[in-house]
Design a protein around this nucleic acid. Structure first.
Length: 838
RNA sequence: GCCGGGGUGGCGGAAUUGGCAGACGCACAGGACUUAAAAUCCUGGGUUGCGACAGCAGCGUGCGGGUUCGAUUCCCGCCCCCGGCACCA
């Protein structure tokens, strides 16, 4: 027999695919397209099997769809900007560009050695000016539309290094380099107005039927729409008022205090009017809840001594400042209703503030004196003037209207989603393309001057201002409007900007004038199948949905949602933990390739569990998949000479039972695998089905003149029935075709061994024939009183009555029914006969 | 606390619409081949009890109930695990 040498096959076929440009595609309106995409990679240096799992999943889909007749776009690229490369530069002195490009080269080799069918000619790297030019282009479009704007915002500041720190660079509140305590500092920063699309991003989720429910829910919660009302409480002792946001205006008669966030503007006003403004400010500042652990230490605050008027009761209530009110949500102020809100209840108990009941339960009446928790549930209004007796939901609607009529408030919709801060005080990112002029203010860089290239920097210190500010010849420019002296913006963009539209760039990756040709996007988009880690469930996917809508409004695309079907793949663990260099539990795919070849690794990773599930890496399992490939190899090798070549007989009507059985199994396997891959994405059971087919073909071979495939029994020109040859040829061809998405190198070689001409990327997926898959007879299980008591054999088209009779007449079943009364005989799906006796 | 997903042999997992629980593989055991080993091929196995070892009976998908001729699947009430969010008024 020919030996199975996977490493040689890997090289041979990978070369072949590259030289024939097998996976490169062009727009072709005459063919249906399929866009298969895996989340592009951060070039960290080495891909481990956890990363690689995702690319294999996508490749199964891409290769299958190609064989199913689609024009398949399956590209890959690099999310190449980012902090790690810059941190490395600070530590080792290697320029981020060099380390990034080196890493890309290595990882690209790894993916190529796995035989992933990428259209490499469309490869992109976000750190190249060809690409980031269009980050800047899109930014300018957003700037023109008021979707990019500046406002003051807080950053982490290291007072020793004089630099801004990213959240990842703050370790336990201290600078990652010098260990000094990080402080908050306000800077002017750029934002994208994603909140303008909040409603649309929310309603669009309804259309994402092929996304995991989990991801949809996470996005919905992140956007966090809530309907409520804004209500103004006039100050009792000064001009002006304080506006609160509430979803429960129906409880307003029970508001016994107002709470302001420590950052609320009114706090400063109160401070200025107080006898000791500095002390007042310091006191308020102590309750700023920057740190998320504030809730752990309970609800704390202080009474400002000022009062407001409840606009519904007319009664005076005190104004407090407390740590549990968020400055950046709603109006930064809330009305305290301790009777009906858990947080207000806790606060009132802490400071002995009065509690009033204004919604009384119909089922379990409560009283302010005895209650141990706020009553947030059902009930009707009490102590609420003209609204008494109304169910709370109705009261909520009526009182919102009343507030508007009285001019003291109005119904409103509030989102948790905040605008997206994109400014980074870093080097290794896209320069924000604006110029600051004393005369003209903030001016966009003219489009014809794009890209604004990153200046050369040779030493990375991690100290001082934004790195770009240290290159005066780059910073100092003339204003595009007035020609006077001006300065470039020295911040770079968040790398999430890069990844928010890269899937569109793949449609037309070489375009020098536009991010992409709208006609290309119209053909290829949306992405039909998108897979990646669940860690991107919120930000990356939400930002991509946002960008798609912005580009729609700019006129480049005509659809709303970029990703039709989403799969979030599970991680690969080793020793119960996520693989990481620091844990020393990384499995390098190259080690596995050296031992078993790419196909065994691919097959194993798909077989071990469904794609969404986390898996524990297991060397023995990989070994098993390798054994299976050898088994397939031996089967094909055993038969190739006899059944191979063109012009073999086709399956005729003269098949015997065993041959018909093989055909049935073949077609049933085609049906199952096609649906497992395309519909259900159960790649593990697809592999099981292949294994079953192989097992069946081994058994069948044993019954032929050739005998079972085995190293010790080489075929020796034995004569087979023509039907046997035809049946095996059909089965083995189908097997090789169906295994090819999983084990493409082996399949190509076997296809050739079978005497076929041409590469598999041009061959169609085997066709399913329902008539062949249908058996002549069925074995029908028979239950008596719910217990399996026997089986009967019946014609495939037996009627329910026939099945009933056959079951009742069966000798084995009679043993359980004789002498008893038959109460009922049910014929169920399957089919299955269920007899009830007593 | 809220939201989402789970709990099936020694292990990974399967069961597509309420219909034969445990497919397929790993590990293990036995057999064939071999001087021998490896490799390969074949066979076996949820569990308990009885027994004439190819037989019989019972139990069995986290726990307790329910619906149904029939429940891993649907309903009610619990327990446990994993993931996300976390003072959003």
């Amino acid at each position: 027999m020919t030996d199975y040498k996977p490493q040689e096959l890997d090289k041979k076929w990978q070369r072949q695919w590259t030289s024939s440009r097998a996976f490169e595609v062009e727009r072709d309106e005459s063919r249906p397209k399929y866009y298969c995409l895996e989340m592009f990679a951060y070039p960290s240096g080495h891909a481990h099997v956890g990363h690689v799992r995702n690319y294999i999943i996508g490749d199964i889909m891409a290769r299958t769809k190609r064989m199913r007749g689609f024009n398949v776009l399956h590209p890959f690229g690099w999310d190449a900007f980012g902090l790690p490369a810059e941190n490395a530069a600070i530590k080792t002195g290697t320029h981020p560009e060099k380390s990034t490009l080196d890493n890309i080269a290595h990882m690209k080799g790894q993916l190529q050695r796995l035989g992933i069918s990428y259209a490499w000619e469309r490869e992109i790297a976000t750190c190249l000016p060809d690409y980031y030019k269009f980050n800047q282009w899109i930014f300018l479009k957003m700037f023109e539309r008021g979707l990019a704007y500046r406002k003051r915002s807080t950053v982490n500041w290291c007072p020793v290094d004089n630099t801004v720190l990213a959240n990842e660079q703050v370790i336990d509140g201290c600078c990652w380099r010098c260990g000094s305590v990080v402080v908050a500092r306000d800077l002017e920063q750029w934002f994208f107005r994603i909140t303008q699309y909040a409603d649309e991003l929310l309603s669009g989720l309804e259309t994402l039927k092929d996304w995991p429910e989990k991801v949809v829910v996470m996005q919905r919660n992140w956007i966090g729409r809530s309907e409520g009302a804004r209500v103004r409480f006039a100050l009792s002792d000064a001009a002006g008022d304080v506006e609160v946001f509430t979803t429960r205006i129906d409880t307003i008669y029970g508001a016994t205090f107002i709470v302001l966030a420590p950052e609320h503007p009114l706090v400063e006003r109160f401070a200025a009017a107080s006898p000791d403004p500095a002390a007042f400010r310091a006191r308020a500042l102590a309750f700023r809840s920057q740190d998320r652990d504030a809730r752990m230490s309970g609800k704390e605050g202080f009474d400002t001594g000022r009062m407001a008027v409840n606009p519904f009761t007319g009664g005076p209530i005190p104004i407090w400042v407390a740590n549990f009110v968020l400055g950046e949500y709603g109006t930064g102020a809330v009305m305290g209703v301790p009777g009906h809100d858990a947080r207000d209840f806790e606060f009132a108990k802490t400071y002995n503030l009065p509690i009033a009941i204004v919604v009384q339960s119909d089922t379990a009446p409560i009283s302010a004196e005895t209650m141990t928790a706020a009553h947030a549930g059902e009930g009707r209004l009490v102590n609420s003037g003209e609204f008494n007796g109304l169910p709370w939901e109705e009261a909520n609607r009526r009182m919102t209207t009343a507030a508007a009529e009285r001019g003291i408030g109005q119904g409103t919709v509030q989102y948790r989603l905040k605008d997206w801060g994109i400014s980074r005080q870093r080097y290794w990112g896209t320069p924000i393309p604006v110029i600051h002029c004393e005369k003209d203010g903030v001016v966009g860089v003219p489009y014809e001057q794009l890209p604004v290239r990153l200046p050369e920097i040779t030493t990375f210190t991690g100290r001082g201002d934004s790195p770009l500010a240290q290159v005066p010849e780059w910073v100092n420019v003339t204003c595009p409007k007035c020609g006077g002296p001006a300065r470039r913006e020295t911040d770079t963009m968040d790398t999430f900007v890069d990844s928010s539209w890269y899937f569109l760039r793949f449609c037309d990756p070489k375009n020098a004038n536009l991010p992409f040709d709208p006609a290309d996007a119209a053909y290829w988009m949306p992405v039909d199948f998108y897979s990646g880690g669940v860690e991107h469930a919120i930000l990356h996917l939400l930002y991509s949905r946002f960008f798609t809508r912005v580009l729609r409004d700019v006129g480049l695309v005509t659809f709303d949602e970029p990703f039709k079907r989403l799969l979030t793949q599970g991680m690969v663990l080793k020793n119960g933990a996520v693989m990481s260099k620091s844990k020393g539990n990384v499995v390098d795919p190259d080690d596995m390739l050296a031992k078993y070849g790419a196909d065994a690794l691919r097959l194993y990773v798909m077989f071990v569990a469904p794609p969404e599930k986390e898996v524990e890496w297991n060397d023995a399992g990989l070994e098993g998949s390798f054994r299976f490939l050898v088994r397939v190899w031996r089967l094909v090798d055993h038969w190739a000479e006899t059944i191979g070549g063109e012009g073999m007989p086709t399956c005729g009507p003269d098949c015997n039972d065993a041959e018909r059985g093989v055909r049935r199994k073949t077609h049933d396997t085609i049906r199952r695998i096609t649906s497992d891959i395309e519909d259900r994405m159960h790649l593990n059971t697809a592999v099981s089905s292949l294994m079953e087919l192989v097992n069946e073909l081994y058994s069948f071979s044993d019954s032929t003149a050739h005998g079972a495939p085995s190293r010790n029994e080489p075929p020796a020109g034995k004569v087979e029935r023509p039907e046997t040859i035809a049946v095996l040829r059909e089965a083995i061809d189908a097997l090789v075709l169906m295994i090819s998405p999983f084990a493409p190198h082996t399949a190509e070689e076997l296809w050739q061994m079978l005497g076929h001409v041409g590469s598999l990327d041009t061959v169609s997926w085997p066709a399913f024939d329902a008539a062949v898959a249908k058996a002549a007879e069925v074995t029908v299980p028979v239950q008596v009183n719910g217990k399996l008591r026997g089986r009967i054999t019946a014609p495939i088209d037996a009627t329910e009555d026939q099945l009933r009779e056959l079951a009742l007449a069966d000798a084995g079943i009679r043993a359980y029914t004789d002498g008893k009364t038959i109460r009922r005989v049910v014929v169920g799906k399957g089919p299955l006969v269920s007899i009830v006796v007593s």
